[in-house]
Structures are given as structure tokens and as C-alpha cells.
């Protein structure tokens, strides 16, 4: 009976073209390269956080300390009061990789550094709990505002979900 015949006796394989050895060597190398040069997002690098924290402290110290003796990091030929905050920030941003915790610790006593950092954090986040939308109330929104918004966003009333009006 036909179905008892081994089906594989009636099937013949065709030779498939295989790439040469160089293809596999190149692929291995390209995978290795891709894994070595894989870009880690800046914000995920621990060094970025350390540098950022260090830079933030540094900027604070530069901006707030009056005595030039406390600021050995700033080149001596440039007085700190000649630099604007923006210039300092730009300098730090450009040279962020040059800053490290050890460098700061070398010039600034640790206690002082911790105190300044806390102070800096408090200043930065003192309004953290404030709701930026607090000052906006429905009473302040006019019909014109709504129409202008719809116009700007290229929407019409049918695009708004019912929930939006609740």
C-alpha cells in the first residue's frame, strides 16, 4: 500500500547555497562590535549621576562662596564675580566628565559640602509640593480660550471625549 512506503524515499533534498566563512567571521565581529559600542543612555550611567551631583554642588559653591580662597577650581586669572551663572553652568556642562567627587572633596571640607548640598536640595525642592495648575480654575477659562485651544490643536467638539466635560 502506498501510504506504507517511507515518504522520505520519495523526497530529495536540494543543496542550499551557504554563505562563505568570511560571512560568518564578519557577522561574529559585527555582533561583538555592536555589543561593545552599545550606547547606554546618559541618564542610566552611574557616573552621570555622580558627576551631576558633584557639578550641582560645585556650581552652588562657586555661585555662593564669597572668598576666592574657597574656589581653587576656578582658574586664578578669572575672578568668580566676573563670571555669570550661565557661563559657569556652561563650563560645568562642557567639562562635566572632568569633575569627580574626589576632586571636590580635596578642596572643600566634607561637613561643609554635606551642609551646602542639603541646603541646595532644600532650595531646589522647596516648592515641589506646589501644584502648578493650582492657579487655574474653571472660572478663569473663557469660551474664547476653549475655542482658541480647539483651533490651535485642530480639533472640533466631536474630538473631545465626554469625560473631558465631567
Amino acid at each position: 500500500m502506498n501510504e506504507e512506503k517511507d515518504i522520505f524515499d520519495f523526497i530529495e533534498k536540494r543543496k542550499v547555497d551557504m554563505p562563505n566563512k568570511a560571512y560568518f567571521d564578519n557577522m561574529a565581529q559585527s555582533v561583538i562590535d555592536s555589543q561593545k559600542t552599545k550606547i547606554i543612555p546618559l541618564y542610566k550611567r552611574p557616573i552621570t549621576w555622580i558627576s551631576t551631583a558633584a557639578a550641582a554642588i560645585l556650581v552652588f559653591l562657586i555661585v555662593n562662596f564669597n572668598s576666592p580662597d574657597d574656589l581653587p577650581i576656578v582658574p586664578p586669572q578669572v575672578a568668580s564675580d566676573e563670571l555669570s551663572k550661565e557661563e559657569l553652568l556652561a563650563y560645568v556642562d562642557e567639562n562635566i566628565d572632568e569633575f569627580d567627587v574626589e576632586m571636590i572633596a580635596e578642596f572643600v571640607p566634607m561637613d561643609e559640602l554635606n551642609a551646602k548640598y542639603e541646603e541646595f536640595q532644600n532650595e531646589m525642592f522647596e516648592d515641589e509640593d506646589a501644584d502648578p495648575l493650582e492657579s487655574i480654575t474653571l472660572e478663569n477659562i473663557t469660551k474664547e480660550d476653549i475655542l482658541e485651544y480647539l483651533n490651535d490643536e485642530d480639533l472640533d467638539f466631536s474630538d473631545l471625549e465626554e469625560d473631558s466635560f465631567i
Partner: peptide, 23 residues
């Protein structure tokens, strides 16, 4: 797509009614 990797030899009634692509 590549040409089918299998070819069919005559003599099996089930396979005779099919194509290399299908098998």
C-alpha cells in the same frame, strides 16, 4: 523566496499530487 529545498520523486501517490513548494 528560495526555490523549494525538496524535490519529489515519482512513485508515491500522495506526493505525486503535490508540488515541491507544498511538500
Amino acid at each position: 523566496l528560495d526555490a523549494p529545498i525538496l524535490e519529489i520523486k515519482a512513485g508515491h501517490s500522495v506526493l505525486d499530487g503535490t508540488t515541491p513548494e507544498m511538500i
